[in-house]
């Protein structure tokens, strides 16, 4: 009887400690694929900053970006803006997927994406537009 109790306690403690260990571990984000996506996004950011500030584009609540007010951009530049937004979103989706797979858990992609969504919005500069539960808000 004592033996069974002992092994049960041992089992429970192993279970609990291993969960803490898993929680404390860092996520792998230093793969060549992730670095390449980061570089591409970093290069594009210079082009996008002015559009964040003007309100032409904003950060969506699902961790992507979207054209919010196309009128803030001259007609001739709208095509370029649209393709920059599409390219940025493609990179962001690739980034979330890549982080999930680099850590051996492709099924984490959605959770990683929603974690990023919150952090992008938190770190956005004052004056940028971000999507809240009730729609677009200016920070």
């Amino acid at each position: 009887m004592k033996k069974i109790l002992f092994s049960l306690v041992l089992l429970l403690s192993t279970l609990l400690t291993s969960q803490f260990v898993a929680a404390a571990a860092d996520l792998e984000v230093n793969t060549p694929a992730i670095s390449a996506i980061k570089n591409s996004m970093q290069a594009r950011h210079g082009q996008l900053t002015a559009h964040y500030a003007s309100g032409a584009i904003g950060l969506t609540k699902d961790g992507l970006i979207a054209v919010r007010d196309a009128n803030a951009v001259p007609l001739k530049d709208r095509g370029g803006l649209n393709s920059a937004v599409a390219a940025e979103n493609a990179d962001r989706n690739k980034l979330y997927k890549e982080i999930a797979t680099a850590n051996g858990h492709p099924e984490w992609q959605a959770e990683i994406q929603s974690t990023f969504a919150g952090r992008w919005i938190d770190k956005a500069q004052a004056g940028w537009w971000v999507q809240g539960a009730g729609g677009w808000v200016k920070k």
Binding site: D26, I34, K38, L95, I99, E111, G118, R119, K123
Partner: peptide, 9 residues
């Protein structure tokens, strides 16, 4: 860990 990774990126 995901938040930390997001912040870094």
């Amino acid at each position: 860990a995901a938040e930390k990774a997001a912040d870094k990126i």
